[in-house]
Amino acid sequence: MSDLTPHDSHANAPERLGYSPVADVPHALRMADTDPKAARRAERQVAAMFMLSMLLTIAFVVGYMTIDKTSIIYIPVFGDVGTSTFVLGLTLGAAIFLIGAGAIQWAKKLMPDVEVVQDRHDLASPASADQEALANYDRGKAESGFARFKLIRRTLIGALALFPIALLIPLRDLWTAPAGSPSPADLLSVTLWHEGLRIVTDPNLMPIKPEDLPIGGLVSGIPEDLEEVQELEGNMNARTKAAIILVRMDPSDIRAQQGDGWDYQGILAFSKICTHVGCPIALYEQRTHHLLCPCHQSTFDLADAGNVVFGPAARRMPQLPIGVDEEGFLVARSDFAEPVGPSFWERG
């Protein structure tokens, strides 16, 4: 402790053994330094905080045991809140906070507030240590024969370089291709849609007649067999690609389509998955026929073949050719002609 010296040196700074002044900065004494009553008061304050903390912890336990987890309470400013969460948070928070507040009050009022000085020491090792380290290294190198045994050295480096491969290779089975081992790109390029597959509404699963859909209307659609497929596959992969929206507009408003006559009496079907990074899209402005992605605001003009009119998406929204079956319900006439969803490397 001999290198501790007080930094603030004023005549009335509390005297501490072994300290000497370093700079002439006035140091104001605190109440607790001069007045024993103030010191007593500070002591009582600190103890009171610790005491209150204990009581609040007990209150937490009582609250935990007695408050019904579904009860709701009105607190001004906060509104209706869950009683349990509110009371537990309040008691726990205050109990912990008071420990901290007490400790800091203790430090500020009763512990020395005179700054002291300590010297820094060189971080770098002294030259003697450098030499010793080097000598040890050289000796070790010579004794191991690392430089001499070329064969050992090279095979060791080879072995060390190769073995991590054995740790990484098994990551390959993070994904196993399904039967017929299609590539990821193949899988991303097909959806459930095929000729004659009925379009049903999502989430009510009702088949759709063209006359059900008014001009300007928008309906979310999925393949009729989607639920079965989901059940079978145990995931929502098929839904991610097959979800579509149906919009109906005045046929004279349609300026272009991705294929001749892919609409049915002004009803157009587009993928619901944004071609930018794959958010589902459902914000449709019927006056302009624009479809807006809520995530990054790519905007597609559905009256103009689903082309991009604004935003970061580079590709148009894929269109699904539709028609009606013999019962008059809307069906797909084929799968999408291009992959749906975000771009990928092999897409071309």
Binding site: V81, G89, I96
Partner: peptide, 10 residues
Amino acid sequence: FGIIALIGGM
């Protein structure tokens, strides 16, 4: 810690 608990509860 205490402030986080207070915010978390409220």
